[in-house]
Amino acid sequence: MRTAQIFYNNQLAGYLSKGEGIYRFVYDKEYLTAAGRRPVSLTLPIREKPYESDILFPAFVNLLSEGANKAMQARMLKIDENDYFGLLLATASGDRIGPLTIKEVYGD
């Protein structure tokens, strides 16, 4: 299973993981009670119960490059173009437009 921390404006908001074809997003317990908290997406309202899906949540897919840029990134990073989770982990940890930053958790 691969897991990533999801940061909203540099505050840990939750965890995204993929295991056996299922994606799971869960909000961090401290974030659930933090003042001024915001959902990471309108499609993922704040709640305790984890979200599960057989496809990567659109809120995270939208962080990926498309078309020729996606093909170039996949080729340079040696990641299959259809491995959205792998591309997300490899490309969404740096400076981004928008409030979300993704950082892989190692040793999980």
Rank of each mutant, 00 (worst) to 15 (best):
S53I: 04
F57L: 02
D80N: 15
L32W: 02
I46D: 06
I46G: 10
R47W: 05
P45R: 07
Y8N: 06
R96L: 03
M76R: 12
L16S: 00
R24D: 06
A74L: 12
L56C: 04
R24P: 06
G94D: 07
E48Y: 05
I97P: 06
T43N: 15
E20H: 08
D83F: 01
L64W: 00
I97T: 14
K18C: 12
V40H: 08
G36V: 05
G98D: 00
G98Y: 00
I97G: 13
Y31F: 14
Q11C: 04
L89I: 02
E48T: 10
N10Y: 11
T33Q: 11
E20G: 03
K49E: 14
R75P: 00
S65I: 00
N62W: 06
S65K: 13
N10F: 09
L63F: 01
N82K: 13
Y84L: 09
A92Y: 06
T3P: 00
S93E: 09
Y23A: 03
L12V: 10
S41T: 07
G86S: 03
Y27T: 01
D95P: 07
V40T: 07
V61C: 07
D54W: 09
Y31H: 09
P45V: 03
P39G: 08
A34P: 01
A4G: 03
A4V: 11
